[in-house]
Amino acid sequence: MRQKYAGLAGAAVLAALWSCVASATLGQQESSIGAEPQLANASIKETALGSYRVHEILQPSGTVIREYAGLDGKVFAVTWHGPFSPNLRQTLGSYFDQYAAAAPAGRQDRNHVQVRASNLVVQVGGHMRAYSGRAYLPQALPNGVTAGDLE
């Protein structure tokens, strides 16, 4: 199931470029939050695929955030891997409160949280110094794109 980067390698790469502007908020336009402080020093690689674009943002801390935007520019998924989890309120945007309300509280599985609603899926795992996560809007996935493509 896990084929890291297979989604990129297998698709036609139309463009790849580096920029000093960054963005990553679920449900917003891909250019909406370029001024966010956590991204001020980040580097970005943009890869355009057939039905969506991936912005890969390398934070100074080493955490990699990938933003998936449809051709309409709307961010339908964000993933992250690295030593620090991102600011979730910024990353999830207006969906943060839904996530926080739905996340199980006070249980002993500290290291995994899954929230699955019809409009929002958030899956977070890891432990201190190493976190991974994936958040997406199931109803906004472009045709042919599955959760497994979001790495």
């Binding site: 899956q123 795992g125 996560g133 994936r134």
Partner: peptide, 11 residues
């Protein structure tokens, strides 16, 4: 046991 939200992980 349970599912793992991280695709590349076995805890």
């Amino acid at each position: 046991g349970g599912t793992n939200p991280t695709a590349g992980s076995f805890d």
